[in-house]
Each structure stands twice: as structure tokens, then as C-alpha cells.
Design a protein around this nucleic acid. Sequence first.
DNA 1: CTGAAAGCGCTAACAA
DNA 2: TTGTTAGCGCTTTCAG
Lengths: 345, 345
Amino acid sequence: MADTDDQNGAESAAKVRTLADLARIAGVSAGTVSRALAGNSLVNTKTREKIEAIAREHGFRPNQMASKLRRQKTGVIGVAIPLGHDVRQQISDTFFMTLLGYLADELTEKAYDLMLRRVIPARDEDWLDHFIGSGMIDGVIVIGQSDQFERIEDVADGYLPMVVWGNHQEGQRHCVVGSNNRLGGKLATERLIASGAKSLAFLGDTQPIEFAARYAGAKEVAAKMGVPIRALPTHLSPERTGEEIAQHLREIEGKVDGIFAATDTIAVTCLKELRERRMEVPGQIKIVGFDDLPISSQTMPPLTTVRQDIAAGAKGLVDLLLRRLEGEDTESLVLPPHLIVRETA
Amino acid sequence: MADTDDQNGAESAAKVRTLADLARIAGVSAGTVSRALAGNSLVNTKTREKIEAIAREHGFRPNQMASKLRRQKTGVIGVAIPLGHDVRQQISDTFFMTLLGYLADELTEKAYDLMLRRVIPARDEDWLDHFIGSGMIDGVIVIGQSDQFERIEDVADGYLPMVVWGNHQEGQRHCVVGSNNRLGGKLATERLIASGAKSLAFLGDTQPIEFAARYAGAKEVAAKMGVPIRALPTHLSPERTGEEIAQHLREIEGKVDGIFAATDTIAVTCLKELRERRMEVPGQIKIVGFDDLPISSQTMPPLTTVRQDIAAGAKGLVDLLLRRLEGEDTESLVLPPHLIVRETA
DNA sequence: CTGAAAGCGCTAACAA
DNA sequence: TTGTTAGCGCTTTCAG
């Protein structure tokens, strides 16, 4: 029962934009309204209910900017996706996008909002400091180290609430969550060799640290088994990949019978080129991918690949970040990859 | 209570967290620092340079919360993805994620940040009001109408800066950007019939308004051409789709020779089931998808589909939203879909 | 061209 | 249990 001293119909027209407005019409102080709406301390139940009713009636929501400013925390986690040289490349990368989806789920669950920022390190050297220093976020998750390993290391020294998806290196200083890429590379290569491949190739850019680790694992196994392996570099941008792969295929025809693709996306494209060149898979040439994206089970033949557990990765990222927000200096989390044997090797 | 008991080396150790701090060490007032850093009005060049130097040296960045509170604008655009009944469904949906990627690009370009929120309407009726009323965003882009058409309509009446990706209906009140789904459905169906199909099926959930429109277009053409068409409902969540489709396929075997799939994702799964049942495509059964996702050119045989221009969609969403932020009451934007003929029909 | 001062809307002591 | 009182850090008149 609010005192409707308004003339007529003015009731619902009254704008309630601030706590003070609401306080006035409820006949209490702003402080009380704040407490009531926070559902927090010992506010008289009657008072609270009255305030809540009025708030609901007027569709009132407290201004978050003011609240965040005052409380010195934002309730927002920043998610940065650094793009490499090929600008358009990674933001639409299926793997990262899927990870982002799960991240959104996890963060929502923990009542955090997610601020997404696509960032081009080449265009803004201090992208990470800017994001962190913006005062807009409580912590940051970086998806992919790209070629920014050193910069991330530098920042990690002075900023605790940061977790990165990527590759783990002995002795690194930033907290990372990611698959054991080297092990993944080994699994893939072992499978290729076990399937009868006698001469291997790694298909994909070897610059990014994750890929380099996959290749390193592959080389290790290949060396141990006395099987030759070569790198066939590609660039991730989908438009160029097709022709690049076709080109490679032309060159290695008859010389290579086992391909380890850096990602499923590359593997799928390769599969298609192989088909167009009428090469039998896995008869003439075997292939193993990496990621286990949904498509890999849909190809013809279905792709043998190394699975990364994206959901577990997202969960790990968020868990570790929340602990860091509490001040804990968490360890990195390295997830085991799993070989998924289908029909291409 | 951090009292700066700086004993030595205080100079570079001195924490510059606020404009006032910086002002003090620059020997000017906070106001001047503010102006200088905004690069804005007529600040003496010397003064500005000095301030900028100090700011750089100390890695100072003004607190955005305070700034936003004061200026009553956030520089943040909210992006909401309402999830339907199947909770996990759409956030990982390739189409939406790709759109999100382009959106991130466009918004970054315009110097806006992007706040991503996954919402479950069934769990929070007022998801849209909450997002808008949070005071955290200047405007909102809703990706997909899901089953929230009415709620969005209601909100649109009282809130200008909102643009929605979805289907356009005659006389609707909210500003929408999307493909002409009905036309897309017609294109797909015409192609199926032109390829010789004599009995059709629409594969996919017909509840979501976009899909309903696609189906409506299909029915219109089918009726005109005197070809029967039936709906085979599926749910989007990947786990269940496979068996559902297999089930449908068993039932319609020999009765249907042309399938219009609501999305490429569904089409690809269908293709796989077809392959397992040793049905020839397009010999025994033809199929057309919708979206033209990257995978559709990678399937075997490559998928004939209806292309939606995602990049143009993202650009449209952002352009319209920015105009709405200026106060313009923009019209909806309906994009023409294009039939991409490959080998499945 | 620069300083002083008044808040943006909210929260959190501290009183009452 | 509630009101009062200070600000959070920044921007922006209004003077000078």
C-alpha cells in the first residue's frame, strides 16, 4: 500500500531510477532500500517486502556501475582472444568458440558476467594491460597464447587473477589450463605408425606453441621408431588452407603415407583434398587429427583424432580463476588427451 | 588501509591509482589530468605531454567504472543468447557462435566492448529486463528469438537500443536482422523438386520461429507443385539428434526421397545416418541444408544448402544498433538467402 | 588554459 | 532495525 498521493494515473508514470527515488516513495532511507534489495542484513521483513514490491512494480534495478564503483569489484570476468597474424583467423575457430560457449556456461553458473574482447596484439602491444587496467573486470581468462607467451609471462608476475588456455612449459610463470599437447602428438604418431605408416608429415603451422608441442611429440616418437617425419606448414585462415594443402599433397605424393594434422579443421580439409585427388584413406594414406570436434565423427571416413576435453578445460579455467580471485596462487592444470580411433588411421 | 610508508625509491614505487595521484605528482589538478588524458579540450600541449608521460611511466589507466558512472554511458553492448528448452543447445551452436565472432569484430571496430550473457528464459522470466536494467550496457543484441518473441516485443515498446537476430514477421515491433527464412525454405524446396524429388520431408524442430518460417516456405512451394511434404521433428541437442534422425529414417524409408533439413548441422548428421543405412545421396534420396556452414562443403558428398550471410548479418546488427543508440527508430533488415548447389540435390 | 567544486548512484561504517 | 554520513574515481560546469 504505497501512499498514492499522485493525482491520477501518475502512479505508474513516476520514474523510479535511483535508490533514493524508491526510498522516498517507500518512506524509508536509501540505505535501507539498498540493504533490502541486497536481501542482505537484518531488514524488517515487512519493510523488505514493501520495498521489493515497489521495486518490482516499477521495474527498478539498481545501477550496477555505481554499485561496482563503490564495492570495488565488478562481477565481470574478461575473456580475451588474442588473434595472431592472420587477423580473422581464430575468433571463428571452432575450438575456441566451443570453449567460449562452455566458459559462458561456467561463469554464468558462478554469477559472473563475461566480457569478451578480441584483441590484435600486433596492433596494440599492451592489450593485456589495457584489459586488466580498464577497471572493468575482476579477472581475466586468455584463450590461446598465440605468439604472446612472453607478454603473458610479464603480466603474470604482477597480476594474480589470470588464467590462460594453452600449452604448459616447464617453469613458466603464468597459470595455464590445457591439454598435454606433446603427449597428444605422441599418441597420434604412435597410432599412425601402428596402422602401418612408414613416412610421416605434420600438417599445420608449427609456430604457435601448442602446435609446436604437438609436433615435438610427433618427432620424438618418429625418431624412436626410426620413421621419417617432415613439417608441412599451413596458415589457419580457411580460405588459404585449401590450396596450401593441395599444394603440399602434390609434392608429397608417394613420399608420405601418414599425416598428423595439427587440428581437426585442417584434417577435414586435407581429407577433402585427398578425396579429390582420389587417394584412398586409410588405404594409401592415413591421417590423424587433433581436438575431436563434432565434425570429426561426421566425415567420410570418420576421423581418427586426439580428443581434448573442452568442457573440462572450461571448468578448470573458471575454477582456477575463482581461486586466484581469492588470493590463492594456483598451479597449472594439464589435461590428458585421448586417442579416439575411428577409420582414418 | 595502505598507508604509503614508502621508505626509499618511493618515486617509481609510488602507486598511481587515481587521477588525483597523477595530478599530485604532475603538479596540476585532477580536472586537468582528466582533460589531458581524454585528449580532449584545449590543454596546453606541454602540460598534456607531461601528464601523458607520467601516465605511461606508471602504467596508469583511469577507472572505467567511475568514468562510466559519471558519464552515464558504458561503452558496452550486451549480447544475449537465449537458450530454449534444451539448455545446452544453442550456445555451442555453430551458427550462433560464428555470428558472435563477427559481432565481436564489428563491435571492437566501433570501440564498444561486448558483454556476453547466456540466458535461460525458463529459469528467469525477466532475463531481458534484467540485462537491460543492469546499468551495465548501453544497448543489447539478442541472438535468436527462441520462444521469446512476445517478451521481446514487450520490451521493444519501451526500449529503443535493441536489435535482434531472427525472423521478420509482418507488423512486428522489434527491430530484427535476419535472413528471409520463408524464401530460403522456398529455394530449398524448389531445388529438391527440380532434382526430381517426389515426396518431401522437413527435418527439424518446427517450433522456433525461424524454422517455422523455413517450413512454411517449403510447404508453400510443395503445395503449389503438388508434392507432399511432412515434418520430422528433432531436437537440436547433438546427442539426441542422431538417434532421432535414425528413427525417422527408418520410418520414412521408401516413402520420402527429398529432405529439407532445418540446419546444416542437422543435414550433416542426417547424411551420416543415411550413409550408415547405405542410402545413396542424391541417388535414392536428396537433401538440402540451411546456413552454409564451413562443414557443408566438406561433407561427402558436399551439401547443397541455403546460404545465410553471417558477416553481413553481424554488420547489420551493429549498424542498426548504433543508429538506435543515436535515437533513430530503425527498420528491420531482411537479408536474402542464396541457394548453394553442391552435390546432395 | 587551469583549478575548484559538485555530483553520477550506490554501499558501508557508525550512530541512534 | 533504520537513518546519516562519507566517499568510490571520474567528468564537467563555472570561475578565474
